[in-house]
């Protein structure tokens, strides 16, 4: 019983901490006007964060061991190329994911 209670309290603490990080900017700037410098970088944040998320997805890649991140970089290249060419989000995403699954499940770059 104490174990259950402890687990529920733990979940509540993690949930509150997570929500706190998400609500923070809205609490700070909910009623008053954000400083000018903020509103200019506000517009530049989404493109920067999205590209950082792409780079973040590569965080666990072993660059110095075979296959040297080639499947990841190759697939990202294909997705980007496809998207610049056709600009069809579903096509780019699913073709890319399918390609990546084939590459890693069949060890296509194992010759490296």
């Amino acid at each position: 019983m104490t174990g259950t209670l402890q687990m529920l309290v733990t979940i509540a603490v993690i949930a509150l901490a997570t929500f706190a990080t998400r609500v923070l900017p809205f609490l700070c700037f909910g009623s008053r006007e954000p400083p000018a410098i903020l509103s200019t970088i506000e517009k530049n944040l989404p493109p920067m964060i999205l590209l950082l998320l792409v780079i973040y997805c590569l965080k666990d890649v072993q660059w110095f061991a075979a296959p040297y991140g080639v499947p990841e970089l190759f697939t990202i290249g294909v997705v980007a190329g496809l998207h610049f060419w056709k600009r069809n989000a579903m096509l780019s995403i699913f073709a890319g994911t399918g390609l990546y699954m084939v590459l890693v499940q069949f060890h296509v770059f194992s010759f490296l």
Binding site: P46, L50, L51, V54, T75, I93, T97, Y100, M101
Partner: peptide
Amino acid sequence: EGMAFVLTALFVVLTIEQ
């Protein structure tokens, strides 16, 4: 294996859209 790469692909596409 490899299916979670769909999120990487999503981020790539959304970056290009940006």
